[in-house]
Amino acid sequence: MKYSTGIETKRKIIDATFQLMADKGFDALSIDDIMTSIGRTKGSFYVHFKSKEELLYEVMRTRLDRGHGQMAEEILEELSKDSCNVRSILEKVVAEIYANSGEDRLTWAFAYYHLLIHSRKNEFVREWLETNADQWSTFLNMIVKRGQELGQIRTDVDTQTITNICMGIVVGYDILFMLRPQIDFSEVNHIHDWMFINDDKSSEKE
């Protein structure tokens, strides 16, 4: 019973930090704020975390990581087929990116961008963000390159440039979402129109 209670308390600390970080930023957040919000004492915080920074890293890992590991194998298998529809694959990836933000996307967006601000003075956070961005760039670059090889994506624009634009669109919509929460994320798929060629033919291959 104590073990289960400890797990539950740790989860509540992480959840509360995630929400409070979105509301006020990490630097303005105190351990007292976190523990008061869940009705626990400050002493119980140190049962689960050595420091506020250690808690931040756990929030990054469990709440803010939009990793593609879970879908990578499936995407790679689809890309290996000559009949694959790269546009549908890209749309699936974009949908998964937003799905990985969780049910409360607005909280995720604000927490993530507070993390970006905090990264200016925290080397570990900055490196984590850079690594995360590099991993996504490599993954999306592979999809775009495959689309070019199959004649589904234009080749008059460099592969990495298209990849950077795709990533920029996602980031841009995250920012726009913070200003206009009612925005329709499916618009992203229409913005991709400029990069695809022979789209009707590729759709017929499905």
Rank of each mutant, 00 (worst) to 15 (best):
D156C: 05
H118K: 10
M35K: 02
Q19M: 09
I143V: 13
Q160I: 09
V94K: 00
M60H: 07
V170T: 13
V59I: 11
Q152M: 10
R87D: 01
I162H: 01
R120I: 13
S44K: 05
E54K: 11
S44N: 09
L55Y: 04
R180N: 13
L90Q: 03
D15H: 07
T163Q: 07
S37Y: 02
L129R: 07
L76H: 11
E58G: 02
Q182A: 07
T131L: 09
D65F: 15
D158C: 07
W194Y: 12
F196I: 03
E206L: 12
G172S: 05
Y3Q: 12
S101K: 12
T107V: 15
T155P: 08
E58K: 10
Y46G: 02
Q148Y: 01
I7E: 08
T36L: 10
E123R: 11
L150S: 09
G6W: 13
E78A: 12
E130C: 04
K50C: 08
I191V: 14
R40N: 08
A28C: 05
I175F: 10
G6P: 01
H192G: 04
D156L: 06
T41Q: 12
A28P: 01
I31E: 00
M178D: 07
V86E: 02
N100P: 06
E149K: 13
N122E: 13
R146A: 04
R66C: 03
G6I: 06
D156K: 06
K145Q: 14
